[in-house]
């Protein structure tokens, strides 16, 4: 009995840790949604690119994955800026533009997946690193150092973004645009520049998440992205907009729920539980658990 209990606790812990990374990917999505009311369907694929950044850095230069996290932030941020100029900015202010971004980002997603398939083949890869060979143990539950680092760095990244949003001039402008784009324009904010920076930031964060995941995830492959898309969207809805700590809680909660789902159903069915939660939240509390029902003034 006790051993079973431990196995359960072990599984749930692993998923809860994954939830920390969900929080980071969801944060990028919710920033982008908040500022330009665009759904980025390529978010998971950009996370996948982050995984490959870490992989190739290790293979080609032996670089520590934690250094790759910074590199991926810059590379993916730059790519995000380019994608924004191609897929979002030309349509977002047109009538029906927000809906159009569903299609343009889906297109980007397909293009990224196809290029990745051509370049890197569909077979899964992983790489060795020091962090996944060290284990931490507490009350019989074992976690690799890699997972612990991914979890903590995700939360630290979320915290840093929160501070950036509260304190910096650009962060405040990002909040202003998401609360009221017309208000932002009349105070002299260059709204299209803020959109560009926000998209780049969100994609950069997806890149960081990809690197962090790659340290323990044995399944780096071109189609790895969509799993993250689904989980992150559920987290965004669950948390609601405008609450960064809500995103952390929702990320860990969704991770935990997935863990429970994989225990009580099968691993293949864990999404059913996640989506049930998702539907319940939409029905009972559409502004999310922590989101304030926002009212334009």
């Amino acid at each position: 009995m006790i051993e079973w209990g431990l196995t359960y606790a072990q599984l749930v812990t692993s998923y809860a840790i994954l939830g920390g990374v969900y929080a980071l990917t969801a944060l990028g999505l919710s920033l982008i949604w908040g500022v330009m009311r665009a759904v980025n369907w390529a978010h998971g694929d950009l996370l996948m690119l982050g995984m490959y950044v870490a992989y190739w850095m290790v293979i080609l230069s032996g670089a520590d994955p934690l250094i790759s996290a910074l590199i991926a932030f810059c590379l993916l941020g730059g790519l995000g800026a380019i994608l924004h100029l191609i897929a979002i900015e030309p349509v977002v202010e047109k009538p029906g533009g927000h809906e159009a971004t569903l299609l343009t980002t889906l297109g980007i997603s397909l293009v990224i997946q196809s290029i990745a398939l051509i370049l890197w083949s569909p077979s899964p890869r992983s790489y060795d690193n020091i962090y996944k060979s060290i284990y931490l143990e507490y009350a019989g539950i074992r976690t690799s150092l890699a997972e612990a680092i991914a979890f903590s760095l995700s939360l630290i990244a979320v915290f840093l973004v929160d501070q950036f949003m509260r304190r910096s001039r650009i962060g405040k402008a990002i909040r202003a645009v998401s609360q009221n784009p017309i208000g932002a324009r009349v105070v002299g904010i260059n709204v299209s520049r803020i959109r560009l920076l926000t998209f780049a930031l969100g994609v950069g964060l997806a890149g960081v998440a990809g690197v962090l995941v790659s340290t323990f995830y044995p399944n780096i492959r071109p189609l790895a992205g969509y799993i993250w898309d689904i989980a992150s969207y559920v987290v965004v809805i669950f948390a609601g907009l405008g609450s960064i700590y809500g995103v952390i809680f929702a990320g860990v909660a969704i991770g935990t729920i997935e863990g429970l789902g994989s225990i009580f159903f099968s691993n293949a069915f864990r999404n059913i539980l996640t989506f049930s939660v998702f539907l319940l939240v939409l029905l009972l509390r559409p502004q999310g658990l922590f989101g304030k029902a926002m009212r334009r003034v």
Partner: peptide, 17 residues
Amino acid sequence: QLFPMMTVMENLEMGAY
């Protein structure tokens, strides 16, 4: 067209952007 989730002070600071 104010920023509803910002304080009066923050709204004024945004005015001086």
